[in-house]
């Protein structure tokens, strides 16, 4: 049955809103409410290459589509890894996926973390909660090319010890002499032997040279605001601090208008922004 009139033509390029098929290889529970998903291309096309900090739109059949930061190793050529918190309807559906299930994927989208720019400098990575997920690819790259950078520091804060992502990996990183990993939590049971206090309190305590540091910060907006302030107080230049913004995203390609923050489209001008460029906008409420 052909319902198409004669003068109809197929669009030449694929629609940027059309997802490609990916197969779930593995679902791993990270914490009470976060899950890590490993995906592989289901049409033999392989996975698209991505830069640390970019995100994909993940579609779950029957549930919908959400943006998810890519948290795998950019050097791993076949797997796409995402970590998500089971909050909205789609994320909940994602967390219920089983190995072998199929999802739709569009991407990667957005701007990357400035890993290249950080060469020759100290690198301070500050993550809050699930904000470690989009920064993990940065850590992979820093460690893979460790000699290219000065001091490398990861400062990570979560609500409780149970909310810490990638615990085994963190332990492995912590054992390296060339990588300082500082973790802190807001609340802890007596058994916790690490630091208690909000993530900002660690910034004055770790060793790095603020004059030659590039900082990459990811977490909720309020956390990033205070972290950036503390980094500035420590002497890190505003134009050497990068943060990753979150807004409602429907299309990821600049068509839908939802993710605007003043003149910026978070999906294509971000999500990673240089702090000095975005700071004036953060001060305006309900922007």
């Amino acid at each position: 049955m052909n319902l198409m009139p004669e003068n109809e033509v197929m669009p030449a390029a694929p629609h940027p809103m059309a997802p490609l098929p990916f197969r779930v290889q593995r679902v791993r529970r990270e914490t009470r409410d976060t899950f890590t998903l490993e995906l592989q291309s289901a049409n033999g096309a392989g996975r698209p290459s991505f830069l640390a900090g970019q995100f994909n739109m993940v579609y779950v059949f029957g549930a919908g589509e959400v943006p998810m930061s890519i948290t795998g190793d950019p050097a791993d050529q076949d797997t796409i890894i995402h970590t998500t918190r089971s909050v909205g309807m789609v994320s909940q559906a994602i967390c219920k996926l089983k190995s072998g299930d199929m999802v739709g994927l569009r991407g990667p989208f957005g701007t990357p973390w400035p890993v290249e720019e950080a060469a020759g400098k100290d690198v301070v990575v500050v993550a809050g909660g699930i904000g470690l997920a989009p920064l993990r690819p940065v850590v992979y790259q820093l460690l893979a090319d460790r000699a290219k950078f000065g001091k490398v520091v990861l400062i990570y804060g979560t609500r409780t010890p149970a909310d810490i992502l990638y615990q085994k990996e963190l332990a492995k990183w912590r054992s390296r002499l060339d990588f300082r990993v500082a973790v802190t939590v807001d609340r802890a049971p007596a058994a916790w032997r690490g630091s208690v206090g909000v993530v900002t309190t660690l910034i004055p305590k770790v060793s790095f040279d603020p004059q030659r540091t590039v900082a990459m910060v990811c977490g909720p907006e309020v956390m990033m605001r205070f972290v950036a302030r503390e980094l500035e107080a420590r002497g890190v230049e505003k134009n050497r601090i990068y943060i990753s913004m979150e807004r409602n995203m429907k299309c990821a390609v600049g068509f839908c208008g939802h993710c605007q923050l003043g003149p910026q489209f978070i999906c294509k001008d971000g999500a990673v922004f240089r702090y000095d460029r975005i700071r004036p906008l953060l001060g305006i409420r309900e922007l």
């Binding site: 809050g128 807001d186 609340r187 206090g197 977490g219 909720p220 956390m223 205070f226």
Partner: peptide
């Protein structure tokens, strides 16, 4: 900030 739970709050 600790009271605020900065790791989960938004906007």
């Amino acid at each position: 900030l600790q009271l605020l739970n900065v790791y989960e709050s938004h906007a």
